[in-house]
Amino acid sequence: MLEARIEQASVLKRVIEAIKDLVPDCNFDCNDTGIALQAMDNSHVALVAMLLRADGFSPYRCDRNIALGINLNSLTKVLRCAQNEDMITLKADDAPDSLNLVFENTENERISEYDIKLMDIDQEHLGIPDTEYSASITLPTAEFQRICRDLSQLSESVAIEATKEGVKFSCSGDIGNGSVTLRTHQNVDKPELSTKVDLTEPVNLTFSLKYLVNFCKASSLSQTVTLSLSNEVPLLVEYKMDNGYVRFYLAPKIDE
């Protein structure tokens, strides 16, 4: 059986908020290393990979592989019943047809308990190869969100060009064109506001802004986001958490 308690409901709330629009139904794969998820969006353009490591829970018990097929809109409804500072305990049997959630508030001795019905989801797992990316760009999450939002007003797609000087996001659409360049820099007082580019070779790739805007729903998970690019492979957009991550992979647009 699975038994996993997380100190802060807000962590789980933010993770689900980050992915629910992209992958509304998905399997949570639970085993002794933690709770993982891998799912493609409906159009098979993007892939979400999430991991909440066992050491982010206390206690954490899961002695065999359990797949929890969850409708994330249903889970969101139940998680709205938890306050951000509540502790959440997740419980499921070995062959579960429901997931039990207990929310505890130690301050006012309030305990609430919910069960949500699980679904049978036939999900394909893709093999994500280990990739040495040509460029890895780490930038403030809020900056990435702003760039995606701004450029999506002009165009459906954005070219991301990484050089050792920095990164340039550019787009062109019916009303005109636009670009935002972030030069590599280090903010000593607030390192999370720095822009860093690790580069082995320059890269220039084009991606759908609709998906990037969607990925930015994970912005509350981390102060920085890392974009990893190589020519002709999917972009990796990674939000790291203390005990896990949410990664989005996005297939590039290819010139005909």
């Binding site: 893709l126 994500i128 647009k253």
Partner: peptide, 14 residues
């Protein structure tokens, strides 16, 4: 214009 790629053509089924 550019064609949107499919993620499955990059990552094979396990």
């Amino acid at each position: 214009g550019a064609q949107q790629g499919n993620i499955m053509s990059f990552f094979g089924k396990k």
